[in-house]
Design a binder for these strands. Structure first.
Lengths: 201, 201
DNA sequence: ACGGTCATTTGATCCAGATCAATAAACAGA
DNA sequence: TCTGTTTATTGATCTGGATCAAATGACCGT
């Protein structure tokens, strides 16, 4: 019933508007999920990692596109059998509801960010929300990986690449962060960053 | 188990950050749901009408505030018993999952709007999404009620009141809409409005 | 190591929408 | 009907972030 699919970097898993026969669960790697306007403007609605589900939306067509950001593997289920499975398993359905509610809450935070926060507030929120702040690994405090490019950060935060870059530079000058490499970042002052994220500056 | 609560216009049903003992379902009227930044900036994440659920989020505290936009009535359930009821009723849980997925899809559309659309594109999208375009009532084609004030439209679309007003004026001058009264609007050219909503202008 | 491509940073200028500031309508209560 | 108050419109100006344009830096395959 489930097939394993291997994705190269940049591979397209779903395309907005295409018929949607499948539902997916991410096994490894990371995906970007986005929506496009006809003229090419893109809004990334989320990044998915191992354990996340994709394609649960209703309707016959996908309402978003999804691409691998790095080599990834996903489990693919045909929608019909998957639905049948869910029908028979209340715990599974419960888990899906729980996850979907979490995603909805995250989406509402993102609306606040997109509708009302300034560029630096958006970036601060983003950096604090990134995985990798586990107090479980105090060995590398504040270290986070940025598996995405500047263009993806920009399209997630409703900004341009240039603004993303300028904000990061400003943050570096203020000593809030440091960037050992463009895809590696250290949060030096999580406290100050948190203030920015809430617009308290 | 369920209590009926009557709300006057402007009455606060939930406040972000408060303990969340209840879950609600709207019986009549309409509510605005929003999030605030400490300095008062507001993002309205949605408008709720009869039949909608509220407060399903997980966690012990509300993560949004909700207020009545007009005299309204809601059913209030204690969270514990409500959860127990859901546990015992797979069809109920299924319905909640279905609704939550719909809400999530709507939230993703709103992210595209807030992150990437211009003022006129936002307004066009908003007007087309409003209830009242039922082909069921062809008696008043294009007529929609705006139960919300300009300030609420602005905070929903990530704009200011002034911009909302100016965009509506522009739309009137172009013959796209007409406004018999500030809270009553007629979509004269749904086709052209739809083009704007998709950024095809 | 070396060249080519792609990604990022930095600089100069522009503009959509915000802000500041009056009016002008709408509406609710006496 | 009038009167005070709230809401909406319109106008003038400002500005954060976009756009246009180089210059620098990373990274990959050979």
């Amino acid at each position: 019933m489930a097939e394993v699919v291997t994705l190269k970097t940049g591979a397209v898993l779903t395309r907005e508007g295409d018929p949607a026969p499948h539902v997916f669960s991410i096994s490894s790697g990371s995906l970007r999920v986005y929506k496009l306007l006809p003229d090419g403007r893109r809004q990334i609605t989320g990044f998915l990692f191992a354990g996340d589900f994709l394609g649960l939306a209703i309707g016959d067509d996908y309402v978003f596109s999804a691409e691998a950001m790095e080599p990834s593997t996903v489990c693919r289920f045909r929608k019909g059998p998957f639905r049948a499975l869910v029908e028979q398993s209340p715990p599974l359905e419960h888990m899906l509801l729980h996850r979907t509610m979490h995603e909805l809450a995250a989406a509402q935070n993102q609306m606040l960010l997109l509708g009302r926060k300034t560029a630096i507030e958006r970036m601060a929120s983003f950096l604090l929300d990134l995985p990798g702040h586990d107090p479980a690994r105090p060995s590398a405090p504040g270290h986070v990986r940025l598996p995405m490019k500047r263009a993806e950060i920009a399209d997630y935060l409703g900004l341009t690449i240039e603004t993303v870059s300028r904000v990061l530079t400003r943050m570096k000058l203020q000593g809030l962060i440091s960037t050992p490499s463009p895809s590696d970042l250290v949060v030096e002052r999580p406290d100050r960053l948190r203030q920015y994220a809430l617009g308290e500056v």
